[in-house]
Structure formats: C-alpha cells, structure tokens
Write a protein that binds this DNA or RNA. Structure first.
Length: 769
RNA sequence: GGGCGCUUAGCUCAGUUGGUAGAGCGUCUGGUUUACACCCAGAAGGUCACAGGUUCGAGCCCUGUAGCGCCCACCA
C-alpha cells in the first residue's frame, strides 16, 4: 500500500479503464455463477459522423449507473454498445466535408461515394469508442454493433420481405415531402413547419356556360396550372348550387369539375379550394376521393414541367408564380390579395422549402402496428420514465399516417427490391433474383433507393441480440431499459416498439427512461452555428470523468432539460477531491481493522452506522425507482455532511485520546467501504482507485456486491444521545464563542466523555452542566 | 386547431403516496487545527406565478387566469 497522492490523478482513469476491460468485467459472463437473473440495456448507437456531445455524456452517465448497479447486484449484466450509420444525417455531414474540398457528391459514382462515407464513418467510430471509454462506459465491446453490419442488414432484409409479403409494406405512387435540394423524399417527421407571411390570392374561375365565377384562394398561384378540380364544403350554402358544375381554369382554359368534400373549411379564404393533386397533400387526398387526375407541373428540381405549358416550362417555381400572377392580372381574374401568415414545410436539416410531389416510394402501413404499440403501453408492458412522456407518445400514435421508408440517397441500406421491364417488382431477403418470376426476363434493375435510417434502427433491439436464435437474444431480449433523449421519442422509441412487437411478438424493452436535453447556460439549444457547444472531452481533461458524470446527474430530475454550467462540474470535482481526502485520512489514521462487536461502539460509531443504514436504504430505493438524482444527492449529503463533517471530526477525538480505538478504526473503514461501493456506479474511477490503493479487498470494486444492510445492530437510544451531542455542538458554534469562553449546558446530562467530545469539537475551554 | 410541460432563495434547480420550505453556486462574517482553502465554522436570503376550491392541514390534489417553452397537425 503506497501513500495516496495529494489529489486524485486524472491520468489514472485510462489505466483503471483498461484494467476493467482486460479483466473481462464488462461481460455479462462475469456473473455467470451468481444466479441473480439478467439485466440488459442496448445503448442507443451514436451517429458515426462526429464527436460525442454532452447529451451522450448524460446518456452514458445514466446507463452506466444502472449497469454498474445491476452488475453489483450480481445480475448477468449486458450493455451492448454500437454506432449508427445515420443515413441522411451522415449524408448531409459528408456533403459539407466535400464542400470544403470544393467537391460535390454528384461528382462520384454510387460505389465510390459509398466507400468514401464508409471510411469516414469507420474513422469517426474509432474516435467515438475512445470517447465512450473516456466517459467510463462499462459496456461489452466484444458485442459492439454497427447498423451496417452484415447480420444487422440481413435481419432488416428478412423483416422487410416478411412485411411486404404480409401486405404491411407497399410500394405506392403517392405524394411525399420532396426536398428539391437534397433530392430525396422524407417521412412526415423530417419536415419542420415555419411560420411565414405570404400572399393569399383570390382567383376567379369562370363557371362553364354561365356568366358568374367561383373564387378560390391560394398561396401558390403557380400550382393552378396543375388544377384538376375546385372543391367546396358540401354544407356550404354559398356553393351548394355549383356542385357538379364545371369551372374553367384561367390561362389554360381547362375544364375542371366542382366537387364537394368535407375537408374543405368553409371559414378559410373564399371557402372554395383549387385542387392540385400533384402538388399538395390535402389536394392529393381529395383527388383520390374524387378520382381526379394528377397533373405534374413541377419537377423534382422545383422547376415547371411541359405540362405547365410552353410559356412556363423550365421556369423556377417562384418565377412561374410571378408570371402566372401577371397573366391573371391581364385576364382580370384576380379578385384581391391579402397577406396571411401560414405554416410552410421546410427540410428539418437545412430549412429549404419542401415541395410536395408524387413519387414512387415504399410505405409501411402503420395502423395495426400503432394499435399494438399503444396497447403495450396502456397495459403496462412498457413503462415510461417519466410517465408524462406516455401522453406525448399516445398523442403522436393516435394520428399516424403511413410511413415513407425509402430515401433517394446512396448512404444506407439499399432496398432489396428489383424492377423488371414488365412492371413486376421482386422483393427478396437480399439475394439478387436471377429472373423475373412473371415474365422470366433476366434483365432486372435494383431499386436505387435506401431505407430510412429509422426503419433499420427501429429493429436495433432485436437485431443486435441476434434475433431469432442467437444466444444473447434468447437470454437478454427484451431489454430492461431503453434510455434515450426525448427528442427521438417518436423518431425511434415509438418505432422500436412497433417493430419489436411486430417481429418478436414481445415488447423490445420494459422501461423507457427518457432524459432531457443539455442546453447552454441560458437555456438555449447547443449548436455549432451558435458556437455554444461544450465538448465533454475538454471537461474530462480538466475535471475528470467522474466529475462530469456527477454534474450531469445531480439536481437533474429524469426527463427534464438541463442548463449546463461549468461551475457545476467544478463543484462535482470538489466532491471527488473530498472523497479522496477522506481516503487519505483513513490511510493515515487506521490500519487493518479488528472485528468489533457492537457493544463496544462509541456513540459516534453507533450514530454513523444508523445513518449509513438509512442512506443505503434510500439510495437503493431511489435507483430502483429511477431517481438517480435523489440517490446521488443522498450519498453526497451523507459523505460530506455526516461522515466527514460529523463522524470523522468525532473520530479525531477518540483516536487522539486513544479511546475506543479499535471500534473507531473499524467503523471508519467499514463505513468508507460501504460508501465506496454505493458511490461506484456514479463515480467509478476515483472509487476504484481508492479501493485499490487502500487494499480494501482482493476483488476490484466494479464486481463487489452492492451494499444494502450493514448487518450491525444499532441502539436507538444511543443514536438519540449522539444527536443531543451534535445539537449542543451546533448550539455552541452558533454563539461564536472564543476558546477562552465557558459554556453552560442547561437541563442535560452528559457523561465526561461526551463533554470532552463537545469541548474537542468546539474548542471551548470549559463546559458546565 | 389538438396536446404537453414550466413558473420554488440573487443564479441553476431538487422537492414521488398532502404534515412546520431544500441543495449547489453566488453573497456576507470568521478561520495558517498534521484528510481536504478543490477546505472548515457560521450568517443572510423564499406570502413555493396569480385567483378560487377540497382538507384539520396544500409547493404537492381540483378549477380557472397570466407569462414562458415544447410537440403534433392537410388552414389551401
């Protein structure tokens, strides 16, 4: 046993981590013979396209605490790490990488760009792993997964084929959110709505065979070139007599019907809507209901097509708008224009306008999947921490629309579907089909599209464990906890529940633990563009991993966002140092402890034993109920305000005066051992280092048993006596007396030993009773 | 349009079956005690957003109001 240095040396963290890893302590098998059941968390795989941020640090802190706690309980504990190829996200990140080199992704062949991004993500993955290790993640690296691993893709293909066969997946020529800049379609979740001021133009369409007009109101006059109807509400008295009549589309003079549809709001605009099924979501639906043709007048690059007519073809949307308005003005068919604010759809990444467009995409029918998912939450198979997130979950699930899972980008899992010239579509589980089963042609082309990342990551919980026959799948599925931030609750968690229930007929996890977002000091979201991003690795270098983890857990109730302040990390670092110094005190003042029977305990021993029992009980209860903040605060308070401030200060009195030395030595060491164990999940590095240096056992702390009850008898009467001593000490201190003063205690009966203890702690010369 | 959350000490936040308001940081006073100044001893500071209600008792439960924030949604 070597003397402890003055402070905990942060460089030791790397060595400690390697010891754990080399010792195989992160593997569930380490608890093979303990027969305490299993515990499993699948780590949300961070995107392999950049560095970890503070949100990841919080994720690691929470999950590692749960994992280390359960490991100490003796369970076969699996924490499975991984990384996400993050399809579109990485696509955008890499686009910027290329931009810096003055290149574009359109400069490369498909395979070439794929290979480049593959290498890019592999490099990032390495950095990420080292960062996860620096945070102390005790996950089983031998089971690490990447979302593009062969076995993961195999599972995804298999399930895709199965869903297709069962009619849950279909290829549809439907209207989707098209991003003309990124040249891909999106699901409804990947678009944002921004409020925007715009002109609402009232246009008069003449009724065929009559002198009068019907007026429609639109914010996108250029789309009128694709109009195939005018719709009114069937209950609208103003237009009842026009239903079934024909309107004449200005400029193009196309004859279009006037139809009735409940979806039309009477109160908005003129109450009559122009219907452009090819370029508006609602119009598309109305078009389907009334069997209206869709005329595409805008192409994938947001330019006007030939269908728009000679004078408009090739114009950008905005140019076409100006020109259409000019024409209408000439024709005197603009009734009036008013300014309104409405919600425009934009790309969630870059904010550019979304153009609704009809394209061929793969969709998942979500009705039944959503129903089952809601049921699983309703009947308690899956619980949310905190419960209020269940409401958000239901709110979203209740109005789901079919999920577009195809993306027109190269980076991702390519869809295992092949097209034949005869029109047949062949879906396989990944194998290249030899010929068309319908016409026997051998010239087949694979769908160039890839899956929405979330379609594959929705299958992460079972795919990583080796569904359907893998040993880990059989042993660890479903996972105990899915821990993630609320911002991907619906992107990911909801879909994992749907897919997990569909594929495995079981819930993929029992508890969903939702943590909040880490914001900057003022509560603003951290982002590169704002320049307020804090790098967790810098904080680890400065204050250590334990301090960073503590600062993210303390005072942060589950599910709530956290405004990050470096001062909090400093405070946590101070606690690490406090613990370190307690270790030094114990090293300097005790040797191997004798076993002592409880009859010989001093008042202080008896009191701290009692306090420790209560603390351990509360800590365990709070971890079990997912209140990690309360658990660590309880420990913090015990260590600093009770063990250090009161017990150790009293211990000095006994040790200096050679009173009850064995008993005090025993209690100091025993209490400290329990504290180290209980603190270990929260601050693994410093506790392990102290454990080793004080030679507190021949095992590493990481695999010690979780401390529950002290198994030491406590005298309630003596607890009360010591509390009286504490009360007197604090009373005397309140008086701000000087050492020469005398203090008189009224109405109390203290022994000489107690009086001396009070004198020792208050430095008062004399105390009278 | 529908839904959710927040409002507690100067600041950031805890407060989980309703029982005399808590922490960290900051501020102020005093400390060169051999674990620790990344420390020790103490102090000041809150009509728990507002208004009603339930209750012997409400920061916590109910109703309403205001301010702030967020999510979902097809106002053309």
């Amino acid at each position: 046993m070597s003397d402890l240095e003055k402070r905990f040396n942060l460089n030791r963290e790397t060595d400690i981590y390697q010891k754990w890893e080399k010792g195989g302590y992160f593997k569930p098998e380490i608890n093979n013979d303990k027969d305490k059941g299993e515990y499993c968390i699948i780590m949300p795989p961070p995107n392999a396209n950049g560095n970890l941020h503070l949100g990841h640090a919080l994720m690691v802190a929470v999950e590692d605490i749960l994992i280390r706690y359960n490991r100490m309980l003796g369970k076969k504990t699996l924490w499975l790490p991984g990384a996400d190829h993050a399809g579109f996200e990485t696509w955008v990140v890499y686009e910027k990488v290329l931009q810096k080199q003055g290149k574009s992704k359109f400069d490369f062949e498909r395979d070439d760009i794929y290979k480049q991004i593959w290498d890019f993500t592999q490099n990032n993955k390495e950095v990420m792993v080292s960062q996860l290790k620096a945070l102390g993640s005790s996950c089983d690296w031998s089971r690490e997964k990447f979302t593009l691993d062969k076995d993961i893709i195999k599972t995804v293909y298999k399930i895709f084929k199965k869903m297709h066969k069962e009619g849950l997946i279909y290829r549809g020529n439907r209207i989707v959110n098209w991003d003309p800049y990124h040249q891909t379609g999106f699901s409804d979740l990947e678009i944002n709505h921004v409020e925007r001021k715009t002109n609402l133009t009232y246009i008069k369409y003449q009724i065929k065979g009559r002198e009068d007009f019907i007026t429609v109101a639109t914010t996108r006059p250029e789309t009128m070139l694709g109009d195939t109807a005018v719709a009114v509400n069937p209950n609208d008295a103003r237009y009842k007599n026009l239903i079934g009549e024909i309107a004449i589309l200005p400029i193009l003079n196309r004859e279009i019907p006037i139809v009735a549809d409940e979806a039309v709001e009477m109160g908005f605009g003129s109450g009559a809507v122009k219907i452009t099924p090819a370029h508006d979501n609602l119009d598309f639906e109305i078009g389907e209901r009334h069997n209206l043709p869709a005329i595409q007048v805008i192409d994938k690059f947001a330019k006007m097509t030939a269908e728009a007519g000679n004078e408009f073809e090739g114009l950008k949307v905005k140019e076409a708008r100006t020109k259409v308005l000019e024409k209408l003005e000439e024709l005197k068919q603009i009734e009036r224009v008013e300014e309104i604010t409405h919600n425009a759809s934009v790309c969630y990444k870059c904010g550019r306008d979304i153009e609704p467009l009809i394209t061929d995409q793969w969709f998942i029918k979500v009705d039944d999947l959503a129903k089952n998912a809601m049921e699983a939450v309703e009947n308690g198979d899956i619980k949310f921490v905190t419960k209020r997130y269940e409401k958000i979950f239901f709110n979203w699930m209740e109005n789901l629309k079919d999920w577009n899972i195809s993306r027109q980008i190269v980076w991702g899992i390519r869809i295992p579907a092949w097209f034949c010239e005869c029109g047949e579509i062949i879906v396989t589980d990944g194998k290249v089909p030899e010929k068309c089963p319908k016409c026997s042609l051998t010239k087949l082309t694979q769908d160039p599209d890839t899956f929405d990342t979330w379609f594959s990551s929705a299958q992460w919980p079972y795919a990583t464990l080796g569904y359907p026959n893998g040993k880990d799948y059989l042993e660890f599925y479903p996972a105990d906890v899915m821990e993630t931030a609320w911002d991907i609750l619906i992107f990911w968690v909801a879909r994992m529940i749907m897919m997990g229930l569909y594929t495995t007929e079981r819930e993929p996890f029992k508890t969903v633990y939702i943590h909040g977002l880490i914001r900057d000091k003022k509560g603003a979201k951290m982002s590169k563009s704002k320049g307020n991003v804090v790098n967790p690795m810098d904080l680890i270098d400065k204050y250590g991993s334990d301090a960073l983890r503590l600062s993210l857990i303390m005072g942060n109730a589950p599910g709530n966002d956290l405004n990050f302040m470096e001062e909090k990390v400093i405070g946590s670092r101070n606690f690490v140092t406090k613990l370190w110094n307690i270790a030094r005190f114990i090293q300097m003042n005790t040797t191997e402890a004798q076993i002592v029977s409880h009859e010989t305990f001093t008042l202080a021993d008896n009191w701290i034993n009692n306090e420790l029992n209560l603390t351990l009980k509360n800590v365990t209860k709070n971890i079990d109920s997912n209140n990690l903040n309360l658990a660590i605060e309880e420990l913090y308070d015990f260590v600093w305000s009770k063990f250090a401030a009161i017990y150790i200060e009293s211990a000095k009195f006994y040790l200096n005066n050679e009173i009850s030395k064995d008993s005090v030595t025993f209690t100091l060491r025993s209490t400290f051992k329990h504290i180290l164990k209980a603190l270990h999940p929260f601050m693994p590095f410093v506790t392990e280092e102290i454990w080793e240096n004080l030679e507190l056992s021949d095992k590493m702390l990481i695999v010690e048993d979780w401390p529950t009850d002290l198994q030491i008898e406590v005298s309630d009467e003596n607890v009360k006596k010591f509390e009286a001593v504490i009360a007197i000490i604090s009373e005397i201190r309140n008086k701000n007396l000087v050492p020469e003063d005398t203090y008189t205690i009224e109405n109390d009966d203290f022994s000489d030993e107690e009086i001396n203890l009070i004198k020792f702690q208050t430095k008062i010369k004399e105390i009278k009773q």
